[in-house]
Each structure stands twice: as C-alpha cells, then as structure tokens.
C-alpha cells in the first residue's frame, strides 16, 4: 500500500445510468482521490445515491437497471465481463443509511465478510474481530458482549459495527450512503471523527443530505442535480466560491 496519497483510485468516464426508461445519471466524469474523503451532495432524487451504488455495482440487483460508460478501479473497468463482482464488493465496501447489522451475534457480524470469503481459521477471525472493533472504537464497550445479538446495540453502535464489519474484509474504498441520517447529532459527530481516522487508510466516498457534514469532513465535494454532476472540486472551494450558479444556490440555501 505504498500508493501516493492523492493518486486517483477510481476514475469515472462518461457514466450514464438508467432505471428502465428513466435516466438517473447523465454523463458523469469524475476522479476519486485515494485516502481522501469525497462528499457527494445534492437534493433528494438527484442521483447521488445511485451514483454511489454503481461504484460497487450494487445496482446490478435492481431489475431493469443499466449502466453505460466506464468506471476504472485498480486498472480495470468494473463493467468489463472479467470483473470478479464478489471481489469488487469486498474491495469497495458500503455503509448504508440505516444501520443494518445482521440478526447474528456481534462477533458473527464482524466476521461475516471473512467467512463469506472463505476464512474459517478461528484465530484469524478472532484477531480480525479485535482489530476491526478496535478500529471503530467499539472494542472496549463490547468486548464482554461479543456473543450478544447485534440487534440489542444502540443505533450508533450498530452503525459502527457495520463499519467494523466492512473493515474486517480490508476494503480499499468505503462508500457511505448517508451513514448518519438515522443518528442523533452527538452520535453523528462521533461517526465523523471516526471517518477522519479512517481517512488515513481508506478512501471514503460519502453521500449526504447534510451540507455542514460535507463541509466538516470532506476533502472534495461534488454537487449533483437531476442526474448531473454540476460541480466538483475542493470542499473549501465549493463552499466558499462555487463556480456554478446552481451550486451556489444550493449551498446558500436558496434551493434544495
């Protein structure tokens, strides 16, 4: 992992996306920097979540969905038929809007991805369990409750657990689809702290409704409107001197 810090890890070229007849994404071109936090903002239905879900091809699960264009990750176009979809999803992980721990024990939740990818060595699983929970600052809270159901945890703990579950399989990119929208402000602040910590080792792309959140945590920001990427750039620049009138209207609250 001696990649240079601001190298491009994902390059999106001319991406179009359709749900049946409806075009949800229009000619998106974008470069995602490694080990940075990229925030995608925009009003509801603007395509930002759809965009996020094309990056690990989760949209494949939707009947009638179709993508055109290229997404280059690690030297390969993820839409090419040679793509190992399971491996892609391991490397490009996803955190969802509502915490969705499995109805299993805390330990089983964290080791789930490892077991799915064929790791069954007990010691290895335990080691990774410790490491993952430590990484999301849950270990001290939960080390005596590892066999309890994950559904008994608080919302924030559940979301942290979902992040731990993801880190356990050692992804390179972490996609976050409004990860704090079900959390209170205090929990949100703590998850944002966690994101800053994770930024050391992971590329994070976060979709958020919350512009303050984008301004607080991200290095780069993209503004989506009606399926178009209106503007993309340094978070500072986007929030202080947006180039596009539509971006300015949105971030100053005149629209959205």
């Amino acid at each position: 992992m001696s990649r240079q810090a601001a190298e491009n890890i994902i390059v999106i070229k001319n991406l179009n996306f359709y749900y049946g007849q409806f075009q949800a994404l229009k000619n998106i071109n974008l470069e995602i920097k490694a080990r940075r936090i990229t925030a995608l903002i925009g009003p509801s239905g603007c395509g930002k979540s759809t965009f996020l879900r094309t990056l690990n091809r989760m949209n494949d699960l939707i009947e009638g969905a179709r993508a055109e264009g290229e997404i280059w990750f690690d030297g390969k176009n993820i839409f090419s038929p040679e793509t190992d979809l399971l491996e892609l999803r391991r490397r490009v992980g996803m955190v969802f809007q509502r915490p969705n721990p499995f109805p299993l024990s805390i330990a089983d939740n964290v080791t789930y991805g490892l077991r799915v990818h064929g790791h069954f060595d007990r010691l290895f699983l335990e080691e990774r369990l410790y490491w993952s929970l430590k990484a999301v600052n849950l270990w001290d809270e939960l080390k005596d409750r590892l066999n309890e159901s994950a559904l008994n945890l608080t919302g924030e703990q559940q979301q942290r657990l979902c992040i731990a579950r993801l880190l356990a399989v050692q992804p390179e990119v972490v996609l976050m689809d409004e990860p704090c929208s079900a959390l209170d402000p205090v929990a949100t602040a703590r998850i944002e702290d966690l994101m800053r910590e994770l930024r050391e080792n992971y590329t994070i792309i976060i979709v958020t409704h919350n512009m303050q959140q984008a301004a607080r945590v991200s290095d780069y920001t993209g503004y989506f409107l009606l399926g178009e990427l209106v503007e993309f750039g340094d978070t500072n620049q986007i929030f202080t001197s947006p180039r596009d009138k539509r971006t300015e209207d949105y971030i100053t609250g005149r629209f959205g």
């Binding site: 979809l85 799915v116 399989v169």
Partner: peptide, 13 residues
C-alpha cells in the same frame, strides 16, 4: 432487504 443488501455489499453470493 437491508440484510440482503448488507450481505451482498460485503461480497457474499
């Protein structure tokens, strides 16, 4: 469905 999504997103078949 969130369970299924969570699992598929981790690369499960």
């Amino acid at each position: 469905d969130s369970y299924r999504e969570g699992s598929m997103a981790l690369g499960a078949t």
